[in-house]
Amino acid sequence: MKLIHLYRSRLLYGLLATLITGSIVIFSPQPSYGQSWLNWIFQGVQVIQLSNLSDQQEVRYGQQINQELVRSGRFRPSRNRALIQRIEGIGRRISQKSSRPNLPFTFQVVEDNSINAFATMGGFVYVNTGLVRAAENEAELASVVAHEIAHITERHSIKQMRNVAISQGLMSATGLSESNVVNIGVQLAVNLPHSREAELEADQIGLRDLKKAGYAPIGMITFMKKLTQKGSSPPALLSTHPATSQRVEFLTRAVNPDIAYQGDGLDNQAYQREFRSLL
Results as ranks from 00 to 15, higher is better:
Gly231Ser: 09
His5Leu: 12
Arg93Ser: 13
Gln56Arg: 15
Gln30Val: 14
Arg155Ala: 05
Pro29Ser: 10
Glu178Thr: 07
Phe250Asp: 14
Lys212His: 14
Ala213Gly: 10
Phe42Met: 15
Thr228Asp: 12
Leu11Pro: 00
Arg60Trp: 01
Asn256Ile: 09
Ala173Asn: 10
Ile152Glu: 02
Leu50Met: 14
Leu83Ala: 05
Ala243Lys: 05
Pro104Gln: 06
Arg74Phe: 12
Gln56Met: 12
Asp258Thr: 15
Thr174Gln: 11
Ile94Asp: 10
Lys230His: 10
Gly62Ile: 03
Ile259Phe: 07
Ile20His: 02
Lys212Thr: 15
Lys225Leu: 09
Gly62Cys: 06
Thr228Trp: 04
Leu69Lys: 00
Arg196Pro: 07
Asp209Glu: 14
Gln56Asp: 10
Lys225Gln: 14
Leu176Asp: 00
Pro217Ala: 07
Arg86Ile: 07
Gly169His: 04
Ile205Tyr: 13
Met121Ala: 13
Ser32Thr: 15
Phe27Lys: 00
Leu170Ala: 13
Ala17Pro: 00
Tyr271Met: 08
Leu278Ile: 13
Val190Tyr: 01
Leu15Glu: 02
Val164Asn: 06
Pro101Glu: 09
Ile41Asn: 13
Lys159Pro: 01
Glu58Gln: 12
Glu154Ile: 00
Pro257Phe: 04
Ile218Cys: 02
Thr222Ala: 05
Leu210Gly: 03
Ser239His: 07
Gln272Thr: 10
Gly22Phe: 00
Glu274Arg: 11
Ile24Trp: 01
Thr222Gln: 08
Pro235Met: 07
Pro77Phe: 07
Phe275Ser: 03
Val186Ala: 08
Val125Glu: 04
Arg196Lys: 12
Leu227Ala: 10
Gln67Ser: 13
Gly91Thr: 06
Gly91Gln: 03
Asn116Glu: 04
Leu237Tyr: 10
Glu178His: 02
Ile24Asp: 00
Ser51Trp: 06
Ala82Glu: 14
Ile221Phe: 08
Ile259Ser: 11
Gly14Asp: 03
Ile166His: 06
Glu201Cys: 01
Ile221Lys: 06
Gly231Met: 01
Ala260Trp: 04
Lys211Met: 13
Arg81Ala: 11
Ser28Cys: 12
